[in-house]
């Protein structure tokens, strides 16, 4: 296995251009190390940790720019994230163990593109985008278009995620990230649900709502039909229940060793209902009636 530790994005991109599918990019390494030990060793390992300027959390044009090498623990201990992006903070807080959070990076979590990846559904409901660099171009890609399957993204073999831009949600909005797992943070989520809700000025009806579902489809998804069923309407318990059922129908989970598809749908329904009710109460100070 060849090994490179490029010092610049340009150097990394030229290595990716040269090695393509042979290469594996490693950041924190908490997933890649397991692959090296238990799957095939890649032909070449590109360790991007020596590239300067890829870690950090900064306010930027009505939002936050997060460097891909920022560790999950850095997100969790950032007052800015906790204050302005609590849905993302909650995902960081429920991310594996402290030891893993100290090493794993948000960029690694995103590029891993696991359907259960903890930070992904929050990024979808926050309508965040990634800055993606290739040797010949650079684009801003909303994460809703970024994931194409388990482990697959629009980065392909030659792209590098160089920044994560998260716009601030409306000041009146409130949200939650709910993770379902047997043992809590340590486990891979059986289901993850992120909800962000914005009431209208009278706090009567739903102005905007976003629902992200994790671990129930080949990629993290938005529950578009459930969202549409709520927009512009007062949030009644009946509507809330109906939206949760819609979300469950939008999921396309599989049976695996962690749970059955049927159970995952039940959980999507339960957590969406819970997430909507909690977020609505936080946003309006009232129960859904």
């Amino acid at each position: 296995m060849e090994y490179f530790a490029p010092k610049s994005i340009a150097e990394a991109l030229s290595l990716l251009e040269r090695y393509g599918g042979e290469a594996k990019v490693i950041a924190g390494g908490t997933d890649v190390m397991v692959d090296i030990k238990y799957k095939e060793e890649p032909g070449c390992l590109i360790n991007i940790k020596a590239i300067g300027g890829l870690a950090g959390i900064k306010e930027n044009n009505g939002g936050v720019r997060i460097g891909p090498l920022t560790t999950i623990r850095d997100l969790e201990t950032s007052a800015l994230i906790r204050d302005k992006l609590p849905v993302l903070w909650e995902a960081a807080h429920q991310f594996a163990s402290l030891q893993i959070r100290n090493t794993a990076t948000i960029g690694g979590n995103i590029c891993r593109a696991s359907p259960s990846g903890e930070t992904l559904t929050p990024l979808l409901v926050l309508e965040a985008s990634g800055n993606i660099a290739f040797s010949d171009k650079e684009t801003a890609e909303p994460f809703i278009n970024f994931f194409s399957g388990p482990g697959k993204t629009t980065l392909g073999a030659k792209g590098l995620l160089t920044a994560i831009d998260v716009p601030y949600p409306a000041a009146e909005s409130r949200g939650v990230y709910l993770k379902h797992a047997v043992r809590g943070a340590m486990d891979i989520a059986m289901v993850g649900v992120a909800v962000l809700i914005t009431p209208d000025a009278a706090k009567k009806a739903v102005r905007d709502v976003r629902i992200g579902l994790g671990a129930v489809a080949p990629t993290p998804i938005r529950a578009a039909k459930a969202e549409a069923s709520l927009r512009g309407k007062p949030l009644t318990p009946a509507l809330l229940k109906q939206a949760a059922e819609l979300a469950a129908s939008e999921a396309s989970p599989i049976d695996d060793q962690r749970s059955s598809a049927e159970y995952r749908r039940w959980i999507v329904e339960a957590l969406t209902r819970r997430g909507l009710a909690q977020s609505w109460k936080a946003a309006t100070g009232k129960e859904a009636v």
Binding site: V182, R183, G184, A185, M186, I188, D256, Q257
Partner: peptide, 16 residues
């Protein structure tokens, strides 16, 4: 065996 590693063979952790 579908869950040979500790990722999916779930033993009690202190928080539960």
């Amino acid at each position: 065996t579908m869950n040979p590693s500790f990722v999916d063979y779930l033993m009690p952790t202190i928080n539960m």
